[in-house]
Computed example of a mutant assay.
Amino acid sequence: MATDEAAAPVKRPRVTAEREREVPTATLQALGDTGYEALSMDDVAARAHCSKATLYRLWRTKAGLVSAAVRSSGPVRPAEVDTGSLRGDLITVAERLARHAPEDSRLYAALSHAILTDDELASAVQTALFRPDTEHVMRFVDRAVERGELTHRPAAADFLPQTMRSLAMSRPALDGTLLDPDYLGRFIDDWVMPALLHT
Protein backbone atom coordinates (compact mmCIF):
# COMPACT_ATOMS: atom_id res chain seq x y z
CA MET A 1 0.00 0.00 0.00
CA ALA A 2 1.44 3.37 -0.95
CA THR A 3 2.40 5.69 1.85
CA ASP A 4 1.22 9.29 2.06
CA GLU A 5 4.76 10.39 1.21
CA ALA A 6 4.83 8.27 -1.95
CA ALA A 7 1.39 9.50 -3.05
CA ALA A 8 2.23 13.17 -2.53
CA PRO A 9 3.09 15.10 -5.70
CA VAL A 10 6.72 15.95 -6.23
CA LYS A 11 7.34 19.65 -5.60
CA ARG A 12 9.49 21.14 -8.31
CA PRO A 13 11.66 24.09 -7.37
CA ARG A 14 10.35 27.42 -8.62
CA VAL A 15 12.35 29.29 -11.21
CA THR A 16 14.02 32.32 -9.69
CA ALA A 17 13.38 35.72 -11.22
CA GLU A 18 17.07 36.04 -12.06
CA ARG A 19 17.10 32.70 -13.87
CA GLU A 20 13.91 33.58 -15.76
CA ARG A 21 15.55 36.81 -16.94
CA GLU A 22 18.51 34.82 -18.25
CA VAL A 23 16.37 32.65 -20.53
CA PRO A 24 15.50 35.34 -23.14
CA THR A 25 19.15 36.35 -23.40
CA ALA A 26 20.22 32.74 -23.80
CA THR A 27 17.48 32.17 -26.38
CA LEU A 28 18.51 35.15 -28.51
CA GLN A 29 22.16 34.11 -28.33
CA ALA A 30 21.32 30.57 -29.42
CA LEU A 31 19.01 31.84 -32.13
CA GLY A 32 21.73 34.06 -33.56
CA ASP A 33 24.23 31.22 -33.50
CA THR A 34 22.10 28.44 -34.96
CA GLY A 35 19.05 29.95 -36.66
CA TYR A 36 15.47 29.07 -35.75
CA GLU A 37 15.25 25.69 -37.44
CA ALA A 38 18.30 24.31 -35.60
CA LEU A 39 17.46 25.96 -32.28
CA SER A 40 16.90 23.38 -29.54
CA MET A 41 15.50 23.57 -26.05
CA ASP A 42 18.55 21.61 -24.88
CA ASP A 43 20.89 24.31 -26.16
CA VAL A 44 18.87 27.12 -24.57
CA ALA A 45 18.65 25.24 -21.27
CA ALA A 46 22.42 24.74 -21.21
CA ARG A 47 23.07 28.41 -21.93
CA ALA A 48 20.53 29.55 -19.33
CA HIS A 49 21.80 27.03 -16.74
CA CYS A 50 18.40 25.48 -16.23
CA SER A 51 16.68 22.23 -17.15
CA LYS A 52 14.77 21.60 -20.36
CA ALA A 53 11.76 20.68 -18.19
CA THR A 54 11.89 24.18 -16.72
CA LEU A 55 11.69 25.72 -20.18
CA TYR A 56 8.72 23.58 -21.13
CA ARG A 57 6.89 24.53 -17.93
CA LEU A 58 7.23 28.20 -18.84
CA TRP A 59 6.92 27.96 -22.63
CA ARG A 60 5.20 24.98 -24.19
CA THR A 61 6.64 25.41 -27.67
CA LYS A 62 9.80 26.66 -29.30
CA ALA A 63 7.83 29.41 -31.01
CA GLY A 64 6.48 30.56 -27.65
CA LEU A 65 9.97 30.64 -26.17
CA VAL A 66 11.35 32.63 -29.10
CA SER A 67 8.46 35.10 -29.09
CA ALA A 68 9.02 35.75 -25.36
CA ALA A 69 12.70 36.37 -26.04
CA VAL A 70 11.85 38.71 -28.93
CA ARG A 71 9.39 40.57 -26.70
CA SER A 72 12.15 41.16 -24.15
CA SER A 73 14.07 43.14 -26.78
CA GLY A 74 10.98 44.89 -28.09
CA PRO A 75 10.39 48.50 -29.10
CA VAL A 76 10.55 51.65 -27.04
CA ARG A 77 7.15 52.31 -25.50
CA PRO A 78 5.44 55.70 -25.85
CA ALA A 79 5.26 56.19 -22.08
CA GLU A 80 9.06 55.90 -21.94
CA VAL A 81 9.61 58.55 -24.63
CA ASP A 82 8.07 62.02 -24.76
CA THR A 83 10.51 64.63 -25.96
CA GLY A 84 7.79 67.14 -26.81
CA SER A 85 8.20 66.79 -30.57
CA LEU A 86 7.57 64.11 -33.16
CA ARG A 87 11.09 64.42 -34.52
CA GLY A 88 12.57 64.08 -31.04
CA ASP A 89 10.50 60.98 -30.32
CA LEU A 90 11.53 59.35 -33.59
CA ILE A 91 15.21 60.23 -33.05
CA THR A 92 15.02 58.56 -29.63
CA VAL A 93 13.61 55.40 -31.22
CA ALA A 94 16.30 55.61 -33.91
CA GLU A 95 19.04 55.80 -31.27
CA ARG A 96 17.66 52.67 -29.62
CA LEU A 97 17.58 50.85 -32.95
CA ALA A 98 21.18 51.87 -33.59
CA ARG A 99 22.32 50.68 -30.15
CA HIS A 100 20.75 47.28 -30.69
CA ALA A 101 21.66 46.97 -34.38
CA PRO A 102 24.21 44.14 -33.93
CA GLU A 103 21.79 41.95 -31.97
CA ASP A 104 18.74 42.89 -34.04
CA SER A 105 20.48 42.19 -37.34
CA ARG A 106 21.40 38.68 -36.19
CA LEU A 107 17.86 38.17 -34.90
CA TYR A 108 16.24 39.16 -38.19
CA ALA A 109 18.66 37.00 -40.15
CA ALA A 110 17.86 34.03 -37.91
CA LEU A 111 14.09 34.50 -38.16
CA SER A 112 13.53 35.73 -41.71
CA HIS A 113 13.16 32.37 -43.46
CA ALA A 114 11.46 30.64 -40.53
CA ILE A 115 8.76 33.32 -40.34
CA LEU A 116 7.83 32.59 -43.96
CA THR A 117 7.56 28.84 -43.41
CA ASP A 118 6.31 28.49 -39.81
CA ASP A 119 2.85 29.97 -39.21
CA GLU A 120 3.06 29.54 -35.44
CA LEU A 121 6.34 31.42 -35.26
CA ALA A 122 5.12 34.14 -37.62
CA SER A 123 2.03 34.74 -35.49
CA ALA A 124 4.06 34.74 -32.27
CA VAL A 125 6.64 37.24 -33.56
CA GLN A 126 3.97 39.51 -35.04
CA THR A 127 2.17 39.55 -31.69
CA ALA A 128 5.34 40.01 -29.64
CA LEU A 129 7.18 42.58 -31.74
CA PHE A 130 5.74 43.92 -34.96
CA ARG A 131 2.21 44.78 -33.85
CA PRO A 132 3.37 46.55 -30.66
CA ASP A 133 6.08 48.25 -32.73
CA THR A 134 3.43 49.63 -35.07
CA GLU A 135 1.14 50.73 -32.24
CA HIS A 136 3.95 52.52 -30.43
CA VAL A 137 5.24 54.43 -33.44
CA MET A 138 1.71 55.40 -34.44
CA ARG A 139 1.15 56.70 -30.93
CA PHE A 140 4.04 59.12 -31.48
CA VAL A 141 2.26 60.37 -34.60
CA ASP A 142 -1.06 60.71 -32.76
CA ARG A 143 0.63 62.71 -30.01
CA ALA A 144 2.00 65.05 -32.68
CA VAL A 145 -1.58 65.57 -33.89
CA GLU A 146 -2.71 66.28 -30.32
CA ARG A 147 0.09 68.84 -29.90
CA GLY A 148 -0.78 70.52 -33.17
CA GLU A 149 2.44 69.58 -34.97
CA LEU A 150 0.34 67.71 -37.52
CA THR A 151 -3.20 68.58 -38.57
CA HIS A 152 -4.12 64.90 -38.96
CA ARG A 153 -2.57 61.46 -39.08
CA PRO A 154 -0.87 61.42 -42.50
CA ALA A 155 -1.30 58.47 -44.83
CA ALA A 156 2.51 58.18 -44.98
CA ALA A 157 2.53 57.28 -41.26
CA ASP A 158 1.12 53.85 -42.11
CA PHE A 159 4.45 52.92 -43.70
CA LEU A 160 6.68 54.29 -40.95
CA PRO A 161 6.93 51.34 -38.51
CA GLN A 162 7.67 48.80 -41.23
CA THR A 163 10.16 51.10 -42.91
CA MET A 164 12.15 51.78 -39.75
CA ARG A 165 12.38 48.06 -38.95
CA SER A 166 13.19 47.15 -42.53
CA LEU A 167 16.28 49.37 -42.44
CA ALA A 168 17.73 47.15 -39.70
CA MET A 169 17.12 44.12 -41.90
CA SER A 170 18.21 45.51 -45.26
CA ARG A 171 21.21 47.73 -44.59
CA PRO A 172 23.62 44.92 -43.65
CA ALA A 173 22.62 43.04 -46.80
CA LEU A 174 22.78 46.05 -49.12
CA ASP A 175 26.03 47.72 -48.07
CA GLY A 176 27.51 45.55 -45.33
CA THR A 177 27.06 48.05 -42.50
CA LEU A 178 24.81 48.25 -39.47
CA LEU A 179 22.43 51.03 -38.59
CA ASP A 180 24.01 54.01 -36.85
CA PRO A 181 22.53 57.19 -35.35
CA ASP A 182 23.77 59.43 -38.18
CA TYR A 183 22.20 57.24 -40.89
CA LEU A 184 18.89 57.03 -39.03
CA GLY A 185 18.95 60.76 -38.25
CA ARG A 186 19.30 61.55 -41.95
CA PHE A 187 16.55 59.08 -42.74
CA ILE A 188 14.20 60.84 -40.31
CA ASP A 189 15.12 64.39 -41.41
CA ASP A 190 15.34 63.79 -45.16
CA TRP A 191 12.58 61.21 -45.69
CA VAL A 192 10.27 60.69 -42.70
CA MET A 193 9.56 64.25 -41.58
CA PRO A 194 8.99 65.64 -45.11
CA ALA A 195 6.64 62.75 -45.86
CA LEU A 196 4.65 63.28 -42.65
CA LEU A 197 4.51 67.06 -42.89
CA HIS A 198 3.44 67.25 -46.51
CA THR A 199 0.63 64.68 -46.73
Results as ranks from 00 to 15, higher is better:
Leu129Thr: 04
Asp89Thr: 09
Ala101Asn: 04
Met193Gly: 07
Arg186Glu: 12
Trp59Ile: 03
Thr61Gln: 07
Asp4Asn: 04
Leu86Gly: 07
Ala144Leu: 12
Asp180Val: 06
Arg186Lys: 15
Thr25Asn: 11
Ala168Leu: 15
Asp82Glu: 14
Leu167Gln: 03
His113Thr: 11
Leu111Gln: 02
Phe187His: 13
His100Cys: 02
Arg139Gly: 02
Thr25Gly: 15
Val81Gln: 13
Arg106Lys: 15
Ala156Asn: 08
Ser51Trp: 03
Gly148Pro: 03
His100Ser: 15
Leu197Asp: 07
Met1Val: 00
Ala109His: 14
Ala156Gln: 10
Asp180Ile: 06
Ala144Met: 05
Asp133Met: 11
Ser73Glu: 14
Ala124Gly: 13
Ala101Lys: 02
Ala109Thr: 15
Ser112Gly: 14
Arg60Ile: 00
Pro194Val: 13
Thr92Ser: 10
Ser166Asn: 14
Gly32Cys: 09
Ser112Gln: 12
Ala53Val: 05
Ala144Asn: 02
Leu90Phe: 13
Ala63Asn: 01
Ala30Pro: 02
Ala68Asn: 05
Val15Ser: 04
Asp43Leu: 11
Val44His: 01
Asp175Gln: 00
Met41Glu: 08
Ala38Leu: 14
Glu135Met: 07
Ser51Val: 11
Leu174Cys: 09
Val137Tyr: 07
Ser51Ile: 01
Glu37Arg: 14
Trp59Lys: 09
